[in-house]
Design a protein around this nucleic acid. Structure first.
Ligand SMILES: [Mn+2]
Ligand SMILES: [Mn+2]
Ligand SMILES: [Zn+2]
Ligand SMILES: [Zn+2]
Lengths: 138, 138
DNA sequence: TTCTTTATTGAAAATCATTTTCAATAATTA
DNA sequence: TAATTATTGAAAATGATTTTCAATAAAGAA
């Protein structure tokens, strides 16, 4: 899979291929880091100087819609708060009404050591979050 | 654990107990939904009309620092993007340099059905994300 | 209790991120 | 090539968050 594939996919979905989109696609396609719209803008402007930030937002929107990019959540990123769980717990959210529950008892040790071995990372923590419908909403 | 405990903890850490903080604490402590600063403001103003939105931000900041509240990430919340993984994959992020890897092979079926039974939720999807240090950074 | 000190407050202003509007431009296809 | 229409970037509008500041109120000392 190459950056060209992304452009083809855009085209196949009725979107035009432009210099601006090329620059954004090339940038995001090959990045090994999660990039904010502003970071994409800075990087992509090296390839296409006239690129506007608005176009970056609009192109990311389309790439997300086509499932070519995905969002990366980082610790300080979302502004929504709930009373913290006690000890090691994770969240379960209702996709309909927003109700939040905590659960515990996950065991990811086998998984994390296998991933650590495969990737060479030293794994420090994990996030696990479940989504579904609560008893009222389902 | 009660809302009073949170106020005591604030006090024990050198913060003063005020009507504004009481209102925010009472609101967040007892919520079953994740609340944005603005939602906290709306709700808490029913208890303390003069409450300013700025104070909500400042109080949440302190509650987070004391680990009394935690952030809740929701699908559209974070603006940072990366080329999507193919099929069912999850992310591993380097806390030092931001490098992102994908991994697969997690099996959470046993866990999710156990949680479904315990909570009455119908579980539709899960997020799993690992954090650590990449081979260069560790 | 009263006094003193100093953290905390809310309003307003400033900043930063995101979205909308719009006329000019460029990609598509007939 | 010409006509159509999606796309563009600039600028303006909106929305969220942070900073500044003078007034106030909590806490501890007297
Ligand atoms: Mn866990
Ligand atoms: Mn999985
Ligand atoms: Zn997030
Ligand atoms: Zn690293």
């Amino acid at each position: 899979m190459s950056a060209e594939t992304w452009l083809e996919q855009l085209h196949d979905n009725g979107y035009r291929i432009t210099a601006a989109r090329r620059a954004v696609v090339d940038t995001v396609f090959s990045s090994t880091h999660a990039l904010t719209p502003s970071e994409v803008h800075d990087a992509a402007r090296k390839k296409y100087r006239a690129l506007g930030l608005v176009t970056v937002y609009r192109t990311l929107e389309k790439l997300e819609e086509l499932h070519l990019v995905q969002r990366v959540h980082q610790p300080m990123g979302c502004q929504a708060f709930i009373a913290a769980g006690i000890g090691h717990q994770h969240l379960l959210l209702c996709q309909q009404c927003g109700r939040v529950e905590f659960f515990e008892g996950d065991d990811l040790d086998a998984l994390t050591s296998s991933i650590a071995k495969k990737t060479g990372y030293q794994i420090k923590e994990h996030w696990l979050q479940l989504f579904g419908l609560c008893s009222d909403c389902k």
